[in-house]
Design a protein around this nucleic acid. Structure first.
Length: 504
RNA sequence: GGCCCCAUCGUCUAGUGGUCCAGGACGCUGGCCUCUCAAGCCGGAAACAGGGGUUCGAGUCCCCUUGGGGCCA
């Protein structure tokens, strides 16, 4: 039997990193088992529907390299009003893959359940239900439907009058949920509400739709977030009522923020688009996410895993039960590891958009500029944890700097006078040095320091401040080359003038 | 409030009754290297939530407590 798993997001907002971790598990499992990974859109909550979020879901998954084997096809996406429908269309034999195109299926199943006596029509008004809940709350009881309509004679409610369809949950007995990570869990039927299956507007609730779709799409393993666990017995009951085989459940632990609460906006970046914009590499994020709630075990101490290694090693049965806290620190470290593993050319490709977005490099990038950038890349490679940090590291190489305050231009344990002289000598030296390249500068500058009776660090510190306007910068000589002779000389001269004013 | 789940260093985790005075990684920290910052290398501090059992023996099994979380509304 072919393994079939799915990710079924609601298009109600940005693609959340917590959901993505669940997708990663689904995808890894599918690829590992040579199965199929299906993308289904659960858009039956029309009040919260946002068409743009479809794109953010597709783009996010694509960017991370989580390809889906079946999903909404061209027609469906066009119907949903998607601009670039063709870019995202996949299709498949189990469509449609957008729930709002499947309403007839849910209605048919709901009616069948009514006919079989597994469900019933209910025309209780929202007002009555609200009052009922209020009373139950006042009595400190668990709010539950009182089954008022359950025992009405069949046909008492006409299919034509407004009504919902509810599941007729057995009054006694137990429902067992088998779960790969949780083991078996037993629920008392008496505690399960007569869940609404079909709303009065003809739309299904999540509970009905998910069961119908998962069955019709022949999903074999339901890998979803832990928060769905409590509603699972309702689903199992539905499978039983319909005489369908239940899939294998696998509830994976939630991803928490540093305060132990479900990860949310206030913890930092949460949408996949934000991670992308901050310069995380897809492979690094995938690696990190895979290790949140899962570890290869067997005494394995490796933590950096390629996509292929993850697929080869992933084991659904080793997924943890405890929720995991999302650590931005560790992600940053891991991202740095991935950045450093890139060749200069590959890293340049990834850096370019960040430079361009900051307005430091024209878009498109002229070929000549490319060669220059390629020499800058090694200067920052081991300093980056996120790609967007390149802007702060290198901005002074592209644009003019703020005037440097005089006190910063005075070398360590030096007088202003000595510093000024040093600066002048450096300018003389750099004015004539050939070629104007980093490698050619080091020895002469070191010799100059010695001649002036300075430690190399003292002299270099002044040059660094004068030319970059920063205390900390990429390696000095490469930076000078990147700035270019003309600008370097001008900045040195400006620094000299600043110091001179101080001396007057 | 009801139902359910979870519990090893600050964080991610290894650990499936003896090889654990608990291993790795991030972070923190000391040092080396060094033009700054990184990277790299070497070292350090840091955990089995508590209490009862079971067992010759428990981080590992059971119960309770505590703490945390999820769902329902």
């Amino acid at each position: 039997m072919t393994v079939r798993v799915r990710f079924a997001p609601s298009p109600t907002g940005k693609l959340h990193i917590g959901s993505v971790r669940t997708v990663v598990f689904n995808w890894l499992f599918a690829r590992k088992m040579s199965g199929r990974f299906i993308l289904r859109i659960e858009d039956t909550d029309r009040t919260r529907y946002h068409p743009e979020s479809l794109v953010s879901i597709f783009d996010g998954l694509r960017w991370l390299g989580l390809d889906w084997d079946e999903g909404p096809g061209l027609e469906e996406l066009q119907k949903a009003g998607l601009q670039d429908a063709a870019r995202y269309a996949v299709g498949g034999p189990y469509g449609p893959y957008i729930q709002s195109n499947r309403l007839h299926l849910y209605r048919a199943v709901a009616e069948e359940l009514v006919a079989q006596g597994w469900a019933y029509r209910c025309h209780c008004t929202p007002e009555r239900l609200a009052q009922l809940r209020a009373e139950q709350r006042a009595r400190k009881e668990t709010p539950m439907y009182d089954r008022h309509c359950r025992n009405l004679p069949p046909g008492a409610i006409s299919p034509d009058e407004p009504h919902v369809i509810r599941l007729k949950v057995p009054l006694t007995g137990q429902t067992v949920v088998h779960d790969v990570v949780r083991g078996d869990a037993v629920f008392e039927n008496a505690q399960i509400d007569d869940q609404v299956l079909l709303k009065s507007d003809g739309f299904p609730t999540y509970h009905l739709a998910v069961v119908v779709d998962d069955h019709l799409m022949e999903i074999t393993h339901i890998i979803r977030a832990d928060e769905w666990f409590p509603s699972t017995p309702k689903h199992v009951l539905l499978y039983q009522a319909l005489g369908w085989e239940t899939p294998v459940y696998c509830h994976v632990p939630l991803v928490l923020g540093t305060d132990g609460k479900k990860l949310s906006k206030r913890h930092g970046a949460t949408s996949i688009a934000e991670f992308r914009a901050q310069g995380y590499l897809p492979d690094a994020l995938l690696n990190f996410l895979a290790l949140l709630g899962w570890a290869p075990g067997e005494g394995e101490e490796q933590e950096i895993f390629s996509r292929e290694e993850l697929i080869a090693r992933f084991d659904l049965f080793r997924v943890n039960r405890a929720p995991a806290t999302f650590s931005y620190d560790k992600l940053d470290w891991m991202n740095g590891v991935y950045i450093r593993s890139l060749s200069a050319e590959a890293l340049l490709e990834r850096l370019l958009p960040f430079w361009q977005q900051a307005g430091l490099v024209p878009d498109p990038c002229p070929e000549g500029e490319r060669t220059r950038l390629l020499k800058i890349v090694p200067l920052v490679r081991e300093r980056l944890r996120r790609l967007n940090e390149v802007v702060e590291w290198t901005d002074f190489m592209f644009r003019e700097i703020e005037p440097v305050p005089a006190e910063r231009l005075i070398g360590d344990k030096m007088t202003p006078q000595e510093s000024l002289i040093a600066l002048q000598r450096v300018r003389e030296l750099l004015a004539s040095i050939e070629p104007f390249e980093g490698e050619a500068m080091e020895q002469p500058l070191r010799a100059l320091a010695q001649e002036l009776g300075l430690k190399a660090g003292q002299l270099f510190g002044i040059i660094r401040w004068a030319t970059s306007g920063k205390q900390v910068s990429p390696p000095l000589f490469g930076s000078l080359e990147a700035i270019g002779r003309e600008r370097v000389l001008a900045r040195l001269e400006a620094a000299e003038q600043t110091l001179a004013t101080l001396l007057r």
